[in-house]
Amino acid sequence: MEIERLVCHPRLPYVAGLQSDRPAVHIWDGELDDLTVLGGDAQPYSVDDFGHDRRLRTPGVAWHPDEPLLLVPTPGGVLRWTPTGIAREPGGAHRWLGFTPDGRTLLASPSARGKPEWDQSDVLDRPTGATGIGPGWDTGVVPHPAGGIVATLRSDQGATLVVFAHPAGTSLRLLSRAVIVNVDGYTAPVFSPDGRYFALRGNNYVHSLDVYAFPSLRRVLHTTLGDLDEPWSWHNIAFGTEPGRLFIGTPTGTLIEYDLASGEAAELPLPSAPPVTALATMSDGSLVLAAGETLRMLQQPPSPAADPAVVREFLAGAPPVAEDEDLDDQLVLTDGEQEWGADDLDALTEASDQDPAWLQRRAGINQVPESGADAAD
């Protein structure tokens, strides 16, 4: 049994592990004692299950931010696990689930009601049962550790946006600052416990790793771990509890501890050196990793509390977009080094070979005249 993704409860000593060969979800306590498994008798994945991309096959599970409650999407609907047992949630089938930071609202994508599905998401107010339609998102929705906003992806083959949204009731309002990255195929963002960084793993062409400071969105790390034919896990990163520390699990059975401030890295070998297939940070700050067929826990100091001031700073500079206007006309995009407004991109006609492919493509599109009359001129 290989675990390819670990998802820790943000405040309680629970961790969920997703098997790589079938849609089975294991749940362990803070001592890594096995509590239960959902879908242990499920049929193995086939090559037709969302194509060959394993990142799109495993269920997009979600922990409630305060309660011992895990939601698991299945083709037949959403399953709910609590320490007292397993039950079925009302509602339809979804690929990805997430809670708002206060735990009141469930975010689900794609929409079970909207058409086309991936252009919209569902927003469910759990206490009242009221529902609303939210913007489209994919590949998981992640609350900021200090609350107030969530981060998620809007993926496209040419470029992917890391977008931020402010949830309120049955509304999910996108904010006007976003990060743009090349191509698609990224996994969900991972925030540091103090909320001052987030990391992004991807993509469909290389095993890339990018880390951004928050709230500035300045990119502080960009590297390629390996080619796609190399056996790197897609879920092999976790932030440490010390500020600016990032851990990276390798296919050769080591952990790399990387200091974002100094750029220095230290390699930590593991006993028997099995490949690291998943890595995450538990609520008490401990690192939990899947390697081979075993789970291991590495102790760290307790996680620091995230400062709500960083979220307030971001909100002050990123007002919500207007829902009745074109999103592309309202977003201010950054790649972590340069920033573009809608007018900047509309006027762009030149790009170098060193620029990202999405920017080169945008410049090429802008060079094409809009009509035959323009071409004649």
Score class of each variant (00 low, 15 high):
1 M>E: 09
2 E>G: 00
4 E>K: 03
4 E>F: 11
4 E>P: 00
5 R>Q: 15
5 R>V: 11
7 V>N: 05
8 C>R: 04
10 P>G: 04
10 P>H: 05
14 Y>L: 15
14 Y>K: 03
14 Y>E: 08
14 Y>D: 05
15 V>N: 06
16 A>F: 08
17 G>V: 10
17 G>L: 11
17 G>D: 11
19 Q>I: 03
19 Q>Y: 10
19 Q>L: 15
20 S>V: 08
21 D>G: 07
22 R>H: 14
22 R>K: 15
23 P>K: 02
24 A>V: 12
25 V>H: 06
25 V>N: 09
26 H>C: 09
26 H>D: 14
27 I>V: 15
28 W>G: 03
30 G>I: 11
31 E>M: 07
32 L>I: 07
33 D>S: 14
34 D>C: 06
34 D>N: 05
34 D>Q: 08
35 L>Q: 12
35 L>N: 07
36 T>N: 02
36 T>K: 02
36 T>F: 06
40 G>Y: 13
41 D>L: 14
42 A>K: 04
42 A>P: 00
43 Q>T: 10
44 P>Y: 11
48 D>M: 12
48 D>G: 05
49 D>S: 12
51 G>N: 07
51 G>S: 06
52 H>Q: 12
52 H>S: 14
52 H>P: 00
54 R>M: 06
55 R>Y: 07
55 R>W: 06
57 R>A: 09
57 R>N: 06
57 R>Q: 13
57 R>F: 09
59 P>G: 08
59 P>T: 09
60 G>I: 09
60 G>Q: 01
60 G>Y: 05
60 G>A: 07
61 V>R: 01
62 A>M: 01
62 A>L: 01
63 W>K: 01
63 W>F: 06
64 H>Y: 07
65 P>F: 10
66 D>V: 02
66 D>M: 01
67 E>D: 10
69 L>H: 08
70 L>P: 02
70 L>Q: 01
70 L>F: 04
71 L>H: 09
72 V>H: 09
75 P>K: 10
75 P>Y: 10
76 G>A: 12
77 G>Q: 03
79 L>A: 03
79 L>R: 14
80 R>V: 10
80 R>L: 03
81 W>Y: 13
82 T>G: 03
83 P>H: 06
83 P>I: 11
83 P>Q: 09
84 T>I: 02
84 T>C: 02
85 G>R: 00
86 I>K: 07
86 I>T: 13
86 I>W: 07
86 I>Q: 12
86 I>L: 15
87 A>L: 02
87 A>Q: 10
88 R>F: 05
89 E>V: 01
89 E>A: 06
89 E>S: 03
91 G>R: 02
91 G>K: 00
92 G>R: 08
94 H>D: 05
96 W>D: 13
98 G>A: 08
98 G>P: 04
99 F>D: 00
99 F>R: 00
101 P>H: 05
101 P>S: 04
102 D>I: 09
104 R>P: 12
104 R>E: 14
104 R>F: 04
105 T>Q: 04
105 T>K: 02
106 L>K: 06
106 L>D: 00
110 P>F: 04
114 G>N: 13
115 K>D: 01
116 P>K: 01
117 E>W: 03
117 E>M: 02
120 Q>A: 09
120 Q>N: 08
120 Q>T: 12
121 S>N: 08
121 S>H: 13
125 D>L: 12
126 R>A: 04
127 P>Q: 08
129 G>M: 12
